[in-house]
Design a protein around this nucleic acid. Structure first.
Lengths: 337, 337
DNA sequence: ATCAAGTGCTAAATGGATTTAGCAGACGGA
DNA sequence: TCCGTCTGCTAAATCCATTTAGCACTTGAT
């Protein structure tokens, strides 16, 4: 191991000089097609050996320039702080590596400015494609990708500028609500008395989850009234106080509680702990977290099917599907009933 | 916006041709030092305008090749599935962007093979530096970085091949244990009866946390006995059954419980829920998670000071500090007492 | 008329790899 | 002897941007 103390990196030129061959030969050998170009096995071995001794490592930026491929796969997402996003990131990385690409995942904290800046950096790095995850308005980013002719796909929140892969919020919410209704009925309480908590009215995911919730109620013969839905936002503080207000106003817990997201869940738990209220009602949640799954009451949790979503997303990068721009729905998985 | 329908990207050559100027002029203008090279403002404006119209975006790989800088900042870490790692990733990204670099974070699932492969890809991409986070044996990776003359730093788990930034596990554990001891004494129970649960004996973090736990006990005049420490691994199933065994064997809960990590915590909660045991003892945990912080009993949680750790890590990339290879200890923050 | 200084710009080298067309020599057959 | 065929390799163009030395011209002073 001839230590490279000198700070410059070894190039194919160095290797060529060392073995007294041409750069082309070295390149051909290092790329493995020496036999196709009739280069003697002995020469090939000498080159390989020397390259290794000199600590040669290909410069992917130079190769990328020549081949106009970067070997980079880009993804932008809000953050890593819940299991859904964390799993998306890890699954994306796995998929990228499987395709011999180097994943670049960047989180943007849902800041529109940052989203644009990050996207343009990634495009300037010439990523081979871009996954756009959980971005409220993907239109601008889709546009940027189109101008750079870089394939892209929207995940989690759909947009019209590219194919989109999202969980089937409505069907999932409907399924969980049906479970809750069964439980409520089993305990003899009234299905009229159920509550949807969390999210923001007007937002894609929330609206669809509410729709699924209401679907199930209607199917069960209930005529939903406005008091059954409380979209109080995502922050735990909000759901905590909204839930407190609801309970105090009505003097009792709802018979069944549909929680729209994991942070909303946190707020409910916080209320329960601080008020000493035991949550003895049917509870369902559109999200999954190992901690929540272990809490002192049974929760029907819906886990989004990250593996399938990502597989579909990867598949939607080819050109026909890029043009189609469909919204592809993936059913979430019921984690616990 | 002259739409680039043709799939090739615009280069400075295209711009030069369009404005009938030389490539050099275009490059100088686009890099903002047109006045330093006495290029007329009018020319400069024409070039800028045309570049914009043609949708020109610099090719960072070409620039990187020329300048032998990639503009990439690399980090490898086990996964994103707990708040500590998630926060590390986000803080790293922020720091990279602040330095005008594009962050590349790759998770390796603690697989030694994957770690090496990912590291060599990142080095071949010529990242400007590499953060090595939570890697059990950083030696090989440090070596690779040294050969590539890429600065690196170990975070969370130390190694001798580069500077390391770690939480002060021992001091933190000691601090929490002192809190627990006070609580135990306040409730009149015996400090002899405390338990350290989780982790793996022989591992850096665990050993230091155990040492801190024992320090505090000795300071409190207790002579620690083997039954006070149960290193049952990290998985919730392990801690769940280990804790059950402990409680059943002794017929009661410990007076104070020191939990070594968040996954261990999950197991304890799982036991508590499944057995209907109320955890009415002093509980402390070396880790932090918003969900855990809201559970139905008070937990003294130690949150690792990610911001400080990352700042120190970034600072340790300069050449003197690269050579020093110190282990830098950062005290964790007591989140709740 | 001559020279220095200033103005506005460009040619060309460079960074590291890939890839194709083709060169030089050996060898066999007619 | 001459041609065709192999064998083993290489020259050179190319990808795109950066950067320095320096060219050609004008202006003003002497």
């Amino acid at each position: 191991m001839t230590a490279r103390v000198g700070r410059k990196k070894t190039t194919i030129y160095d290797v060529a000089a060392a073995v007294d061959a041409s750069v082309s030969t070295v390149s051909l050998v290092l790329n493995g097609d020496w036999s196709r170009y009739r280069i003697k096995e002995e020469t090939s071995e000498r080159i390989l050996k020397t390259a290794h001794e000199l600590g040669y490592k290909v410069n992917l930026r130079a190769r990328g320039l020549r081949l106009s491929k970067s070997g980079l796969a880009g993804m932008i997402m809000p953050h890593y702080r819940n299991r859904f996003f964390a799993d998306l990131a890890e699954t994306f990385e796995l998929g990228a590596r499987k395709r011999n690409l180097c994943p670049i995942v960047v989180s943007t904290q849902r800041d529109v400015e940052v989203e644009s800046k990050v996207a343009s950096t990634l495009l300037a790095q010439r990523v081979e494609f871009l996954f756009i995850v959980g971005v409220a308005d993907p239109a601008i980013l889709n546009r940027m990708c189109e101008e750079a002719s870089v394939p892209c796909v929207n995940v989690d929140l759909p947009g019209a500028g590219a194919p989109s892969v999202v969980s089937d919020n409505q069907a999932g919410a409907c399924l969980v609500t049906q479970k809750l209704i069964n439980k409520v009925r089993a305990t003899g309480r009234s299905v009229d008395d159920m509550l949807f908590l969390g999210g923001v009215a007007g937002e894609y995911a929330t609206d669809n989850r509410v729709a699924g919730f209401l679907d199930a109620l209607r199917q069960a013969g209930v005529d939903p009234h406005p008091d059954m839905v409380s979209c109080c936002g995502y922050r735990p503080e909000n759901s905590s106080s909204a839930f407190r207000a609801y309970v105090e106003r009505r003097g009792r817990l709802p018979s069944g509680l549909f929680i729209s997201s994991i942070t909303t869940f946190e707020g409910v738990v916080r209320y329960s702990v601080s008020s000493g209220t035991l949550l003895d009602c049917a509870v369902g949640c559109f999200d999954w977290d190992p901690f929540a799954a272990d809490l002192p009451f049974t929760v029907a949790m819906l886990r989004q099917d990250v593996e399938s979503m990502m597989e579909i997303a990867f598949n939607s990068l080819d050109s026909e599907r890029q043009l189609a721009r469909d919204i592809l729905m993936v059913p979430p998985i019921l984690e616990r009933a």
